[in-house]
């Protein structure tokens, strides 16, 4: 029996729809589980207290704080570097082999496995530059990892600033750099920030790059300087779920939920920034 095209289409579309359901259902399941099992653990003490009894009780405050430090450190290093690299590519670079090399390098940086970043950070920052296992080494490692995201987003934001703005400024005898600083960058800023926050939210959830460069197994105090180790949420979750026996699942799920919430707050922030400029954009 030969199927009519109409029936074929019906079957094909059902299969495609089913595939989408298969993709989306686990997302919903994961979130329901996290919220159902994690939410009961979350209270003021959990968020603000030090861990106790070999991390089997108490809070996860140092891990939250550590992740915050790493996020800040990553922004401080990666934002200027990424934005200026994008400025070079959009405003100064000509179409030649060197520009192509830079683009290929960015693509490859984006594809380097996170654990390889960890090895690299260990080799360069921890040992060769003698930073030791520290917030500094961890932030630098994470910065290089998120650099491609920031460069790509910044390039897009810079290119979306109308060429006419640049001409108007240059026609007044304003130099190229001043034009970029005073006209192009301010107008590209929201897009740049959106990309940066998204990149950094990825860094916040990464474990492998910080494994050998900063993360402390158990450190119930806050770091004193950038040369200190710190705890971090993703690593803490790893430790709780595989390295410490007899941990109340509530604490594990609570930690997972806090980590996911933190990443989502950052993502949400990016969406808000993006929506805000879309509303305000004047050209």
């Amino acid at each position: 029996m030969k199927l009519s095209p109409k029936w074929k289409q019906r079957i094909a579309f059902s299969v495609l729809g089913l595939a989408s359901v298969v993709v989306i259902v686990p997302v919903i399941v994961i979130f329901s589980i996290l919220i159902e099992k994690g939410l009961p653990a979350i209270n003021w003490e959990f968020l603000t207290a030090m861990p106790r009894m070999g991390m089997r009780a108490g809070g996860i405050f140092p891990a939250i704080a550590g992740t915050m430090y790493l996020v800040l450190g990553t922004i401080v290093v990666a934002l200027p570097l990424g934005v200026l690299a994008a400025v070079y590519l959009v405003e100064y670079a000509r179409q030649n082999w060197m520009t192509r090399m830079i683009e290929v390098a960015i693509v490859n940086l984006a594809g380097v496995p996170s654990v390889v970043y960890g090895l690299f950070g260990l080799g360069l920052f921890v040992i060769f530059l003698k930073f030791g296992s520290s917030i500094l080494a961890g932030s630098l490692t994470l910065s290089i990892m998120v650099l491609p995201v920031i460069i790509t987003a910044s390039k897009e934001a810079l290119s979306s600033v109308p060429q006419s703005f640049r001409e108007a400024s240059l026609a007044l005898g304003v130099s190229k750099w001043q034009t970029i600083r005073c006209i192009v960058l301010p107008n590209a800023l929201p897009g740049i920030l959106t990309g940066t926050i998204l990149g950094v939210s990825r860094a916040a959830g990464e474990t492998a790059p910080i494994l050998f460069t900063v993360a402390a197994f158990y450190l119930p105090r806050l770091p004193k300087s950038v040369f200190d180790q710190c705890m971090a949420l993703p690593y803490h979750l790893y430790v709780l779920s595989t390295q410490v026996p007899n941990v109340n699942p509530k604490i594990q799920y609570g930690t997972a939920l806090v980590l996911v919430a933190l990443v989502f707050i950052l993502n949400f922030l990016a969406i808000v920034v993006r929506a805000h400029i879309r509303g305000k954009k004047q050209w």
Binding site: V23, V27, L34, S201, G205, S241, Q252, A256, V260
Partner: peptide, 18 residues
């Protein structure tokens, strides 16, 4: 939904998977 999936840290996927 797909964007949410992309944003979940790998350690959390690992944890739920485990």
């Amino acid at each position: 939904g797909v964007e949410l999936l992309a944003a979940i840290p790998s350690i959390v996927i690992g944890f739920i998977g485990m």
